[in-house]
């Protein structure tokens, strides 16, 4: 899932400062699940923005709407009927959503209200951790299901660096050393030998090294 968190209020306020009528658009997908931009967060942010404008002695009109998915043109179309009654759009979706809106409503200033962070998994309620960097060439099959690209601070492919301490990464005792995890996992699977296989230099093209990526499924294209 894509994870995101709300931008500092100050930054959001600065974006919309010149406008009186704002469309606050949430998304019912990933950002809802990571509690950054679903219906509830939309409501909270709207409330906060209204409070702020009252504090400035200003009246601001905020229309709240949460789309099923902001990265699909059909859902984004829902805004079309009302978009003329607004001065700016504040999107609480991930970067994909913001860009889909910007692509569709070209005349309209569109601002992001969240910072899109990473593809992560929920560790437990309220905690999300990065798990995938979309490198386009998945090697989880040989690293025991733990990704060294996303989870090793140095994206090392051949083992831990010398900074590992008690299974934790040198950058912080909060961060697990991915290679320690991989090693433990390989041992548990009886696949220790795998470790000594050299992993050759990675082809970074599928991860964006070859420019913006795109998937075309010819069979599905209409």
């Amino acid at each position: 899932m894509i994870t995101a968190e709300q931008k500092p209020l100050e930054e959001i306020i600065a974006y919309i400062e010149p406008y009186d009528r704002i469309f606050l658009v949430g998304c019912n997908e990933c950002v809802t699940v990571c509690a950054a931009g679903g219906r509830k967060e939309v409501g909270l942010l709207a409330s906060a923005l209204r409070l702020n404008s009252m504090k400035q002695g200003k009246t601001i009109e905020i229309k709240e709407i949460t789309l099923e998915r902001q990265c699909d043109p059909e859902y984004v179309e829902e805004l079309a009927s009302d978009i003329n009654r607004t001065d700016a759009v504040l999107s609480m979706a991930c970067g994909c959503g913001v860009q889909t809106l910007a692509g569709r409503y070209k005349e309209m200033p569109i601002f992001p209200a969240v910072n899109t962070l990473f593809m992560g998994a929920s560790e437990s309620q309220g905690i999300w951790a990065e798990r995938c960097r979309g490198c386009g060439d998945c090697l989880l099959g040989i690293t025991g299901g733990i990704c060294p690209v996303a989870r090793c601070s140095k994206s090392l492919f051949n083992g831990p660096c010398g900074g590992t301490c008690s299974g934790k990464c040198e950058i912080s005792p909060e961060v697990d050393c991915a290679w320690c995890l991989i090693w433990e996992r390989l041992k548990a699977l009886g696949m220790e030998k795998r470790y000594e296989e050299l992993m050759e230099a990675k082809d970074w093209r599928p991860s964006g090294g070859g420019g913006p990526r795109k998937i075309v499924r010819k069979d599905l294209v209409l």
């Binding site: 509830k40 409501g43 909270l44 409330s47 906060a48 209204r50 409070l51 009252m54």
Partner: peptide
């Protein structure tokens, strides 16, 4: 008590 309720009261 939702965060929204608390905010609403201030609003």
């Amino acid at each position: 008590v939702d965060a929204l309720h608390m905010m609403r009261a201030f609003e």
